[in-house]
Design a protein around this nucleic acid. Structure first.
Length: 465
RNA sequence: GGCGGCGUAGCCAAGUGGCAAGGCGAGGGACUGCAAAUCCCUUAUUCCCCGGUUCGAAUCCGGGCGCCGCCUCCA
């Protein structure tokens, strides 16, 4: 099964054909809880990973944890605790949030602090090769030593230099040079190095970890579009300057989550913590919200959008749980099979085209609609069940629609059955007041009744977590 | 200013050369004792605007307008 992905580097679709896919996704800096915008790449690329697996490929998925950084140090100062404590706390919270978001754990979650020795080695080699230089215990990468600098972001060196927004640092030979190693200031976390005690710069960790765990070139490097420059540009410069081989083949970048059109960011104060959003709308509504928009486009966060996603998810579950309660009987007409399989093809075709999850979910919804019509037209339960099974199967890699219908305990279930039986009798006797009272009281208890031509069915509401 | 991207119904949104997916919402109808759910019909002769290419364009080309991201830490 082919899969074309739009690479930022080549600016066109590229075929991903490897049987073993090595992918690297930029992870969090653990100085605070992640906000819902941070969650976008985690959800989207997790879905991509699962889809690749469902195609029978092996996926090695690496996502770093930046546990040494200015923001962590600042936070530690504010709280008067060691930076390592802040990092440990938010690393743990990050893993909890992944779970809440329904995101599978990466194959590897390397921490920057575990890679300091390897980063030092890496930086030494860059210095030897003439791509980096030492100034007062700091080490900088020399952008001028890598002629291809700018190829990812499409930036031209001369124009960057002309830009007034680049801070002038006396120590740098060139304002565009970036720090590979920072000399420790008093009270900061520090590690020994040939240039004195200090800590690694942010742009280096991803390179060293990816090279160590995946080797180069690896298949996919992904992250938010705000990382294209300078972060990913700098990664490419370091890695390729040293190895003289391509770093990553395909570069994927997700669009930003916005709020009323503006990027969601901690610094703008317009953010919501991921866990609070999940708490309010449920895991699947959040995933559905993200996956019904092309991952490369910006997406606007709002209560209305999340509520809509929640309703849409509930609609699909209504269908699934209802369908799965039908008896296993009857025939699946040829015409209906054909319709289902053409929608299945459409689903895969959409995903193969730059992982168009929104189009694919559209196909899923079409399956639901087709099944409703089939049933309405008097189709056998077997066909409806087949449609439900197909939805389950296709949605699995997206991390959607896998929740089983909530059931009550044995006795409770029988008691509900008894109430339904009594109510049916009341309805027959036209005692609708009492019949409606049973329905209303059950609804208050979270049991929703539905009268269908073939009898009354029930579901427990609020199943999605 | 440079680079990248976006502009499709009331709202969200897929589609990138051959009759405009899907979701949410709204209105009408069927079913029902009622309710819910479901089904049917209606809600874009048209895809920001203006030109061009083509038998044919939302889709390609040129020019506008508007919005966003990056150029500084940032998913």
């Amino acid at each position: 099964m082919g899969l074309q992905l739009y690479s930022t580097l080549s600016r066109r679709l590229e075929e991903l054909s490897s049987d073993t896919v090595r992918m690297y996704v930029c992870g969090p800096t653990v100085y605070d809880l992640i906000h819902i915008g941070n969650a976008r790449p985690f959800i989207v690329f997790d879905a991509l990973r699962r889809y690749l697996k469902s195609q029978g490929r092996e996926v090695i998925y690496v996502q770093n944890i930046t546990d040494v950084d200015d923001k962590i140090i600042n936070r530690a100062r504010e709280e008067g605790v060691p930076a390592s404590e802040i990092a440990a706390r938010y690393t743990e919270e990050y893993f909890r949030d992944l779970e809440r978001l329904g995101v599978n754990r990466p194959t590897h979650s390397p921490k920057a602090t575990e890679y300091v020795a390897k980063m030092v080695e890496f930086i030494e080699k860059l210095i030897e090769k003439g791509h980096a230089y030492v100034v007062d215990g700091d080490v900088y990468f020399s952008v001028a030593s890598f002629p291809e600098y700018g190829k990812l972001s499409g930036k031209v060196l001369e124009e960057l230099k002309a830009g007034a927004r680049i801070a002038v640092d006396e120590k740098k030979r060139d304002p565009l040079d970036f720090a590979l190693w920072k000399a420790a200031k008093p009270g900061e976390p520090k590690w020994p190095s040939p240039w004195g005690e200090g800590r690694p710069g942010w742009h280096t960790e991803c390179v060293v970890m990816a090279m160590d765990l995946l080797g180069v070139p690896f298949d996919i490097h992904a992250g938010g579009s705000d990382l294209i420059f300078p972060h990913h540009e700098n990664e490419i410069a370091q890695a390729e300057a040293l190895t003289e081989k391509p770093f990553a083949r395909i570069w994927l970048h997700n669009g930003m989550l916005t709020v009323r059109g503006e990027k969601m960011a901690k610094s703008l104060g317009n953010f919501a913590y991921a866990r609070d959003v999940v708490e309010r709308y449920g895991t699947e509504a959040v995933r559905y919200f993200y996956l019904t928009r092309a991952y490369r486009k910006p997406l606007d966060f709002s209560d209305a959008a999340l509520s809509e996603a929640k309703r849409a998810v509930e609609g699909v579950y209504d269908f699934l749980w209802e369908a799965e309660s039908l008896p296993e009987e009857g025939e699946i007409p040829e015409a209906f099979s054909v319709e289902l399989s053409s929608l299945e093809d459409k689903f895969h075709a959409r995903l193969s085209d730059d992982f168009d999850t929104a189009g694919a979910i559209g196909a899923l919804q079409e399956i639901v609609g087709a099944a409703h019509r089939f049933r309405q037209a008097g189709g056998d339960p077997a066909g409806v069940r087949a449609a439900a099974a197909l939805v389950r199967k296709l949605a699995e890699p997206l991390g959607l629609f896998q929740v089983e219908r909530p059931r009550a305990e044995g006795l409770t279930e029988e008691l509900i059955g008894l109430l339904i039986e009594l109510r049916a009798e009341l309805r027959k006797q036209k005692d609708f007041a009492l019949a409606d009272r049973i329905r209303a009281r059950l609804a208050e208890l979270g049991v929703e009744l539905r009268d269908t031509p073939t009898g009354t069915t029930w579901t427990i509401k609020g199943g999605d977590g």
